[in-house]
Nucleic acid binder design. Structure first.
Lengths: 340, 340
DNA sequence: TTGTATGCGTTATCAA
DNA sequence: TTGATAACGCATACAA
């Protein structure tokens, strides 16, 4: 911005009043203390000058930034935009603005980004990058930083969190495959350093056992990505060529399976059935359309935002966690196993 | 954040120096004026207290926010996340932070969001929501607000912009279809209120004429969305049932075509070929994989950021526009027309 | 109803 | 090399 922005003082001078009066006239909450005529004059002057209150000055004076930080790994992962929008929808209605940062799953970057948010005096944090062992978050929590986790939890720290009901989702996936007649079912888990990865892997083992199936066909992906999903799938096929179905840790990992099928000339669901997790956009248009577990991402974000507002309102409130229901969406990537 | 954050004063006291000294010790640019020993003491104290400079106070004093605003319509449109990351990659390297806002294509919301950005003293704006007739942007530009447009332009205002070479992309699409033998080629254009929509539609007409084809098979979509693409496709099929190929204004509109094909039992590319625009993620896994024009979104963002940095550096620099090359990606949604 | 005075936390100018 | 002081723009307690 090039032109020297007009200040409250400019407005006050233009309206022929003192800055204090101008301030009161411009703030809806104090406008009543001012004569209607004066208020009108001030507001007109502000309008004419294109006055915008300097939020740095306001925040310095009131020690309220009206800002919340949202920490995500990577905006280009289709999982996150809906979460962001959900967060924004609630916080903006509550008079807050949201500052989004990406960490790229890099600890140092995360530290720097959160530091930057703190220096901006954010009044709270919504964090979607939590790992089970996360000293940084633990330390912030101990220091009294208000925060809510999305989709993840941290060990040994009672931090409020909003997550999907992963265990139930995985159970539904395994049940669906078992009903179709699958016996050799594998799980390509996400990183076991994340609560999400660990919860889903454990749920897989439990569900497999409940159906009297082997629960040991698990390969861990290094990251929640298509490439790592493909790598894990190759390893899995080498180890257990007789498998007929895969429960992927998330949709991207499932897409990695698709890549391997294309490489090896395997047909899905003919040779192998696959189930994803998250129901990210456009999965219904894939070849084949991906069966997956739908997670209400927008709601996840919205609920986390609501929870954060609660925490800001009453700081001593005990940490609560919210589990949102998920649902299996059956599409074309699952079918009965080929009879061999 | 609950605990009263330590201030520079706390650090200074802990280190036994004056705040001015502490300030100089903490700022790399002024640290040289300070004895190494004192500097070390101050930095250690800052570390111990977990001191974070209050950016509101700094920005108030220096009248530099170190922040740039990024205005996009909707983060959940897969087009935008790569642009955001491109913008961030350059601006963060340049010492700036990026504040992202969504407008939902709502004029009032856009006005409010930009106002909010201005009140935060952003030093520049990158805007991806421009319409051809855009009084708000024109007014801001006249007021000397530094900004760069992405993917769009505004009529009657010389505002710097970075866009893909849409005309060449559309020409390549039409050429590809003509070579395959298509004659009845239609265009589902984006909104003609956007420069992108208008440029692509005009390019379509020109390209059609160059190949001796009818250029009048054009239907305008109300928005760049799957639903509006489907609606336009239905209208198009009603009007010209003999068409054999469609150049969609963007990938989402192309997906709308897929929906109509499913509704009506048409096969793609058997009955109708389709080409999208943008090459958003995962199109290669669609049924059929979508032929499209790849636009370098990350680079678009990065170049816009570079341009903004230039503009901030030299405010009187004449507006330049940058056209980035695009490329046709041929996949499975295009084939020769069925011989009837 | 309006004006005066003060301070939020930081940096920049000046003096020591 | 360091300290004292002022000022950025605003909101508010207090005085008038």
């Amino acid at each position: 911005m090039t032109d020297p922005a007009p200040t409250l003082r400019d407005v006050a001078e233009a309206a022929g009043v003192h800055t204090a009066t101008a301030s009161r006239a411009l703030n809806p909450k104090t406008r009543q203390q001012i004569s209607a005529e004066t208020a009108r004059r001030v507001m007109r002057a502000a309008q004419a000058l294109g006055y915008q209150p300097n939020s740095a000055a306001r925040s310095l004076k009131t020690s309220r930034s009206g800002t919340v930080g949202l920490v995500i790994p990577d905006l280009t992962n289709p999982l996150f935009p809906p979460i962001v929008r959900g967060v924004e929808s609630v916080l903006e209605a509550g008079g807050y603005n949201v500052w989004i940062v990406n960490t790229d799953n890099d600890e140092e970057r995360e530290r720097a980004q959160i530091e930057s948010l703190r220096s901006r005096q954010v009044e709270g944090l919504i964090v979607a990058t939590a790992r089970l062992d996360h000293p940084l978050l633990r330390r912030l929590h101990e220091r009294g930083v208000t925060m809510v986790l999305i989709n993840r939890q941290v060990e040994h720290a009672r931090i409020p969190a909003v997550t999907g009901d992963d265990a139930t989702g995985v159970a539904a996936a395994v049940h669906h495959l078992a009903e179709l007649g699958h016996v050799r079912i594998a799980h390509l888990s996400g990183p076991l350093t994340t609560s999400t990865g660990r919860v889903r892997a454990r749920a897989f083992r439990h569900a497999a056992r409940d159906h009297g199936l082997p629960g040991d066909l698990v390969v861990e992906c290094a990251h929640w990505s298509e490439a790592d999903g493909a790598a894990a799938m190759r390893e899995l096929l080498g180890r257990s060529p007789d498998l007929t179905a895969v429960v992927a840790g998330n949709d991207l990992i499932a897409l990695g399976c698709y890549d391997v099928f294309a490489e090896r000339g395997l047909s899905c669901p003919g040779d192998v059935s696959v189930i994803g997790f998250n129901d990210m956009p456009f999965l219904d248009k894939l070849r084949p359309p991906l069966t997956t577990v739908a997670v209400p991402h927008h709601e996840l974000g919205a609920e986390a935002a609501r929870m954060l507002l609660d925490c800001i309102g009453q700081p001593d409130r005990p940490a609560r966690s919210l589990l949102l229901p998920v649902s299996l969406v059956v599409r074309g990537s699952t079918a009965p196993p080929r009879v061999s």
